[in-house]
């Protein structure tokens, strides 16, 4: 299992379209992909749009990114990069 801290850098946090982008990316991989808010331990499945929305993660929230599964190396890199890039919301 791979685990590392990432930060939400989008202006309005994880709102619907950002969540949709995360789900689309996470769904490409077989691994289980979770994020967990460091401050209160709330977790969300990155393949679940409602779970991500319900996190209510605003800009600056620190998250633990956890990836576990057969393609975890690729999945972890892709997800980490997605968070670091600030998750481009443009279509």
């Amino acid at each position: 299992m791979k685990r590392e801290k990432v930060v939400v850098s989008n202006r309005y946090g994880i709102h619907a379209r950002v969540a949709a982008t995360i789900v689309k990316e996470a769904s490409k991989y077989k691994s289980d992909i979770y994020i967990e808010k460091v401050d209160d331990g709330m977790r969300a499945n990155c393949k679940s749009i409602l779970g991500l929305l319900a996190l209510g993660a605003s800009k600056g929230t620190i998250l633990n990114l956890e990836v576990d599964g057969e393609d975890e190396t690729d999945a972890f890199e892709a997800m980490k990069q997605l968070f670091e890039s600030g998750i481009e919301e443009n279509e």
């Binding site: 619907a16 379209r17 949709a20 789900v23 499945n45 393949k47 679940s48 749009i49 409602l50 779970g51």
Partner: peptide
């Protein structure tokens, strides 16, 4: 977004 709600695996 609605589509993603109903396709949510959870």
């Amino acid at each position: 977004v609605y589509l993603m709600f109903i396709e949510d695996p959870t």
